[in-house]
């Protein structure tokens, strides 16, 4: 009998929805699993980049000088403004202003397209100079990291489009969380790849 009582006390530790620490975060908890996973991947890739650069800093610096830093700065501004509109959209949807929310989310997605346009201009210049993903050293890593990020921008635009179609407040939060993660990743990879030298 005594043992039963002791065991019973531990049953108090059962959270209602089962998501534990993830339940307090905005949007679907699994989106946060994805966000954490993505940050881990980009983080590891950047650490690999730092390690690879230490093998041959001079060649890396020479290759890096071919990048268009101004285009990178412009794209930073584009993405951050896009994120701003996405955040406004979530806010509007939470207040029940569906029309305003749609407009803002559409603007956010449109700025995502602008980002991709700028990025593809950059890529075409890199390729014209003879640098591609098989160049080795800096450019292989640069194309992998920025390319993988650009794929996330594409995926993000698709997700935002889905949210526009199925526009519950919860979906707004989930979709915007993914979009902000894409923002966040760019904020971290941009200085590492373009500015530090």
């Amino acid at each position: 009998m005594r043992r039963e009582e002791v065991v019973d006390i531990s049953t108090a530790v059962v959270d209602e929805d089962g998501w534990g620490p993830l339940s307090g975060l905005p949007g679907h908890p699994l989106m946060w699993v994805l966000i954490a996973s993505e940050l881990a991947v980009f983080g590891l890739a950047l650490l690999g980049y730092a390690g690879a650069r230490l093998h041959d800093p001079i060649a890396f610096a020479a290759a890096q000088d071919h990048l268009d830093r101004l285009a990178g700065v412009i794209n930073t501004a584009v993405l951050l403004t896009s994120g701003f509109f996405a955040a406004l959209a979530v806010d509007a949807r939470a207040r029940g202003r569906r029309g305003a929310a749609r407009l803002r989310l559409t603007l956010a997605a449109a700025l995502g397209v602008v980002f991709l346009v700028v990025k593809s201009v950059e890529y075409s210049r890199d390729l014209a100079q003879g640098f591609d993903i098989d160049s080795g050293g800096f450019f292989t890593i640069y194309f992998l990291i920025t390319g993988f990020h650009a794929l996330h921008v594409v995926l993000g635009i698709i997700i935002l489009a889905i949210v526009l179609r199925f526009d519950s407040p919860g979906n707004y939060e989930t979709g915007a969380s993914f979009w902000h993660m894409v923002d966040l990743v760019w904020i971290v990879i941009f200085p590492c790849l373009y500015l530090l030298r």
Binding site: V41, A45, I133, I141, L144
Partner: peptide, 10 residues
């Protein structure tokens, strides 16, 4: 291609 070394490692 060599870029698989990065993708696979990460």
């Amino acid at each position: 291609p060599g870029y698989w070394q990065w993708i696979g490692s990460v």
